[in-house]
């Protein structure tokens, strides 16, 4: 909580995925997929289990969004996990300095 722990100026995101998960949530809210009050209730529940730290905060954020999307049937946990593995494979197949594209993982196993 010490305000002097963080250097100024402080950026809201310390890793790109944090910005991404934040913006996905705002975009979904704006497109009408859930109300912000409903989001805050789910997120607040996930935050209860966190300790101090920006990383914990954004991990709780991501877990809350995954829970909301799974309960709405928009993105199931197993699908997310399978696709995350494909992204990891794509990263391994992409040379340093080149953008990581999902196609780099090779042909999709299904469809």
């Amino acid at each position: 909580m010490n305000p002097h722990e963080t250097p100024q100026p402080e950026t809201p995101f310390t890793e790109p995925w944090q910005a991404r998960i934040f913006a996905l949530t705002v975009a979904l809210n704006e497109a009408g997929h859930f109300a912000w009050a409903d989001w805050a209730a789910v997120f607040g529940r996930h935050l209860k289990d966190t300790k101090d730290g920006a990383g914990d905060y954004w991990r709780a954020w991501a877990a809350a969004l995954e829970e909301m999307l799974a309960s709405q049937g928009a993105a199931g946990g197993a699908d997310v996990a399978a696709l995350a593995e494909r992204w990891q494979a794509a990263a391994h197949a992409t040379p340093h300095g080149k953008p990581i594209l999902l196609e780099n993982a090779g042909p999709a196993p299904e469809a």
Binding site: E15, I21, E66, A75, L83, T94, H96
Partner: peptide, 15 residues
């Protein structure tokens, strides 16, 4: 090529 995504990064991309 030894590029490795942070698990949260990979999951966010998947989402």
């Amino acid at each position: 090529h030894d590029n490795h995504l942070d698990p949260m990064d990979a999951r966010t991309r998947a989402l």
